[in-house]
Every structure is written in C-alpha cells, then in structure tokens.
Amino acid sequence: MKIDRKVLLVDDEVEFTVTLAKILSRREITVGTASNCAEALAQMESESGPFTVIIMDVSMPEVNGIQCLALIKREWLCSEVIILTGHASVNTGIEGMKEGAFDYCLKPINTSELLDKIELAFEKVLVNQEQSTQS
C-alpha cells in the first residue's frame, strides 16, 4: 500500500513556506502552500488536495493554527497535522495535541527534525490506512 507524499505548508511568513517547499520538493514530496486558514481549507478541497500531512504555524491572523487544526481534523481525519510554535506559550504544544495534532516543532525550526517528523506522520497515515483496510 502506498500513500500520497503530499504536504501542505500553512504559514503567513511567505519566505518560510517558499524555503521549506524547496527542501521538501527535493525529497520527492508534492508541496502546496497557504498563508492563512481559509486558503488552507480551500487547498484541501481543491484538485491538488487533500494533503496527507499539513505543517501549520500556530500564529496566523484571524483563525489561528490551533483553530484551523480543529477544522481540518473535523473534515479530514486521515490527514496528520504538525504544528509550528514560535512565541506561543509552552502549553500551546499540548493544546495542539489535544486538538489532534500529530506532533509539534518549535520555530525557528530544525529542518532535519521537521523532516523526520514528516516521515513519521506519513508512516502513521500509512498504518492507519492499512488498519482500516483490514477492518
């Protein structure tokens, strides 16, 4: 069984998403980008969606990352979300986990750590798919 190696980057810092998108593309990952929650939801519903893994900044205008995470998990339970926290409180990580985040990374990010977490998230989606097929 295979999964779509598709990652959606959601962050209002365009420079960050562009840089990370280049890194991910080199690892044979299809990358989509969004700069806010509304764009992220639209991307998930678009032809290029849904994305298997979503990397989402917590600090975003209007709808923040935790709220957006809840909206995504409500519609796309199979997708895994990794949240990025910068200046948020130490409890933001746990808030994200409670809303169903797969994991978190601190900003400024450690690229290799984030890449590992993305691979683990892919692995989890694959396992979940296998389980649901078996049942």
């Binding site: 130490v90 990580g93 746990i94 978190y104």
Partner: peptide, 17 residues
Amino acid sequence: VRARTTAVTVNVYKMVN
C-alpha cells in the same frame, strides 16, 4: 528554557496518551 520545557510537557503528554 521555553523550547526544552515544551519538549518535556508535550512528550509527557504523549506518554500518558
């Protein structure tokens, strides 16, 4: 301090789960 503390709290949360 903030980064390591977050790492501790989140991972202990994961362990409990």
